[in-house]
Lab assay of single mutants.
Amino acid sequence: GATAVSEWTEYKTADGKTLYYNNRTLESTWEKPQELK
């Protein structure tokens, strides 16, 4: 079967924080998503 690919993209901001963006739900979060833990 196909492996579930994470929908989350990780961005590094200018101040060194990490922003997570979900390509499916168009949601963005500063918290690390469950799927990435």
Rank of each mutant, 00 (worst) to 15 (best):
T9Q: 09
E7N: 06
A4R: 08
K37D: 14
T13R: 04
E27M: 07
N22A: 01
G16A: 02
Y21S: 03
D15I: 03
L36G: 05
G16S: 01
D15G: 08
A4K: 09
W8E: 00
N23V: 12
Y20K: 00
Y20E: 00
E31S: 06
G1W: 12
Q34E: 15
G1N: 13
T25W: 02
L26I: 02
E35F: 08
A2H: 12
V5F: 14
L26H: 15
T18W: 05
T9D: 03
K17V: 05
K32D: 04
L26F: 15
A4Y: 09
E31V: 11
L26T: 08
S28Y: 15
S28F: 15
L36V: 06
T13F: 14
Y20P: 00
W8M: 00
A2N: 12
Q34F: 12
S28W: 15
E31Y: 06
K17L: 07
P33E: 01
P33L: 02
G1F: 15
E35Q: 08
N22H: 03
T3R: 07
T25A: 01
Q34N: 14
R24L: 13
L19R: 08
V5M: 13
R24S: 07
W30I: 05
E31R: 05
E7W: 07
Y11L: 12
G16H: 03
S28H: 12
P33D: 01
T25E: 02
Y11F: 14
T18D: 02
N22W: 02
N22M: 00
E27K: 07
E31G: 03
T13G: 07
Q34R: 08
Y21E: 03
G1S: 13
T9S: 10
S28A: 10
V5S: 13
T29N: 03
E27C: 15
S28K: 11
T29M: 05
N23W: 14
E7V: 07
N23Q: 10
A4E: 13
Q34D: 15
E31H: 07
N22P: 01
E7S: 05
A14N: 08
N23G: 05
G1H: 14
L26P: 01
Y11D: 01
W30D: 09
D15T: 08
A2V: 12
K17G: 04
Q34K: 10
W30K: 05
N23F: 09
S6W: 09
K12W: 07
W30G: 05
E35W: 05
L19A: 07
E27Q: 10
A14S: 11
G16F: 00
L36E: 06
E10M: 10
W30S: 10
W8R: 00
K32V: 10
A2I: 13
T18S: 07
L26Q: 15
T29S: 10
V5W: 14
K17T: 08
D15M: 05
W30R: 05
K12T: 13
L36I: 08
G16N: 03
T29D: 02
E35M: 07
R24W: 10
K32M: 12
T25S: 03
T25G: 01
L36A: 05
W8G: 00
T9A: 06
E31N: 07
S28I: 15
V5H: 12
T3N: 12
T29A: 05
A2D: 12
A14E: 10
E35L: 06
S28T: 15
S6G: 11
K32P: 08
S28G: 04
S28L: 15
E10F: 08
R24G: 04
G1Y: 14
T29E: 02
V5E: 11
E10D: 02
N23K: 11
R24V: 15
E35H: 07
N22G: 01
T29Q: 10
N22F: 01
A2Y: 12
V5R: 08
Y21G: 01
G16P: 01
E31C: 14
Y11P: 00
